[in-house]
Design a binder for these strands. Sequence first.
DNA 1: CAGGATCCTGAGGGATACTG
DNA 2: CAGTATCCCTCAGGATCCTG
Lengths: 142, 142
Amino acid sequence: MDMEEGTSDSPGHRCDTDPDPWQWDRREDCEVRQILDRIADKWSLLVIALLQGRTLRFTELKRQIDGISQRMLTSTLRQLERDGLIERTVHPVVPPRVDYALTPLGSTLHSTVQALVTWTELNQNEIAAARARYDSAATSRA
Amino acid sequence: MDMEEGTSDSPGHRCDTDPDPWQWDRREDCEVRQILDRIADKWSLLVIALLQGRTLRFTELKRQIDGISQRMLTSTLRQLERDGLIERTVHPVVPPRVDYALTPLGSTLHSTVQALVTWTELNQNEIAAARARYDSAATSRA
DNA sequence: CAGGATCCTGAGGGATACTG
DNA sequence: CAGTATCCCTCAGGATCCTG
């Protein structure tokens, strides 16, 4: 399979020695950057959101997430499991049944992410307006 | 140029009619998803972080952000400007001088994002431990 | 200095077929 | 049902060269 392998990570805790608070992560190999990239990817947030407060099986997740391929769902679930954000439970029955649920760690992430989603919801009109302004200005220039 | 064009967005406010609170964004074309994807991309967060509380010029940003190409810096800045998160000021001098600063909207985003960064910093050890467990289990299985 | 225009690669990710 | 294994293709994004 072509599933990504465990990138050799953790070069350090803080990313550089600059004391300025806005200097957290200029380096590409920064650990925080890596984690951020992972949870902010195309599907992870969706999965975490859907698992909030309940357990779902593979097919249920697939049905809930519009447009995901089973390849990517599998991959996403494996990553999240590896990071300790979700728990995978295989029931030894036939046909197989596999349940996914958030770990406590995953739950704390959800509430944090929720703040970002709320920000987006609150400000999407303002952003849309800014885009409209920008685009019309660009169009009139052309 | 190959800079991305204004994707025809805004299909609706909430993403679907499901009343469940964890159902915000199953659809791919969801407006919240779009905004989230944009601000969570490889470089946007870095730029916003660096502009917190100060103004920087193009070259200063490029120097601060390790590994970014000028192509991507330009692209990122344009996106953020279009979304109304940063302001671009061209000084009519020679050689040209262009300053970038956060708008008020951009500032509010920064504090929200900071919560996510803080979460990551707080939990990176736990995540690293989870990965180590997962990887060693996978290795022993092979 | 700030960025536009091109070329090109590689990883992300879809579609499909197969299996325990 | 819950995956795995392949093939294949798009496109984000780096490298490079060029201008006002």
